[in-house]
Amino acid sequence: MRAVVLDGPGGVDRLRLRSVPIPEPGAGQVRIRVEAFGLNRSELHTRLGLAEGVTFPRVPGIEAVGTVDADPEGVLEAGRQVATMMGGMGRTYDGGYAEYTVVPRAQVIPFDSALPWENIGAVPETLQTAYGSLTTGLDLRAGQALLIRGGTSALGLAAATLAKDLGATVLSTTRNHDRVTALAAHGVDRPMVDDGAIAARVRDLVPGGVDAALELVGTPTLPDTLAATRIHGTVCFTGMLSNQWIIHDFYPIAYLPRGVRLAAYGGEAGDLPAEVLQRWLDRIATGEISLGPVHVYALDDIRAAHQDMERGRRPGKLVVVTR
Rank of each mutant, 00 (worst) to 15 (best):
residue 118 E to N: 11
residue 230 R to Q: 14
residue 290 S to W: 10
residue 264 A to Q: 07
residue 319 V to R: 07
residue 220 P to W: 11
residue 128 Q to E: 15
residue 82 V to M: 11
residue 139 D to S: 13
residue 238 T to V: 15
residue 57 P to I: 05
residue 181 T to A: 15
residue 107 Q to C: 08
residue 11 G to R: 10
residue 253 I to M: 14
residue 195 D to M: 02
residue 120 I to Q: 07
residue 282 D to A: 14
residue 36 A to L: 02
residue 24 E to M: 13
residue 216 L to G: 08
residue 75 V to R: 13
residue 304 A to L: 15
residue 46 T to N: 03
residue 99 E to I: 05
residue 5 V to N: 00
residue 29 Q to C: 04
residue 317 K to W: 13
residue 76 L to H: 05
residue 16 R to N: 05
residue 120 I to T: 09
residue 184 A to M: 09
residue 205 L to D: 09
residue 74 G to M: 06
residue 311 R to E: 15
residue 312 G to I: 00
residue 262 L to V: 00
residue 259 G to D: 13
residue 67 T to Q: 15
residue 157 L to T: 00
residue 130 A to E: 09
residue 258 R to P: 00
residue 83 A to I: 06
residue 109 I to T: 12
residue 21 P to C: 09
residue 76 L to W: 13
residue 189 D to K: 03
residue 29 Q to P: 01
residue 42 S to D: 02
residue 22 I to D: 11
residue 67 T to M: 13
residue 248 H to G: 05
residue 82 V to Y: 11
residue 185 A to Y: 03
residue 308 D to T: 03
residue 319 V to H: 10
residue 309 M to Q: 14
residue 39 L to K: 01
residue 259 G to Q: 08
residue 47 R to H: 06
residue 69 D to T: 02
residue 179 R to N: 13
residue 287 G to H: 07
residue 12 V to T: 15
residue 239 G to C: 04
residue 114 A to L: 11
residue 95 G to L: 10
residue 244 Q to D: 12
residue 111 F to Q: 02
residue 88 G to E: 08
residue 277 L to N: 04
residue 86 M to Y: 10
residue 91 R to M: 15
residue 115 L to P: 02
residue 107 Q to K: 09
residue 50 L to W: 10
residue 189 D to N: 08
residue 243 N to A: 12
residue 201 R to N: 09
residue 92 T to S: 15
residue 44 L to N: 10
residue 74 G to N: 06
residue 216 L to I: 08
residue 93 Y to C: 07
residue 236 C to F: 01
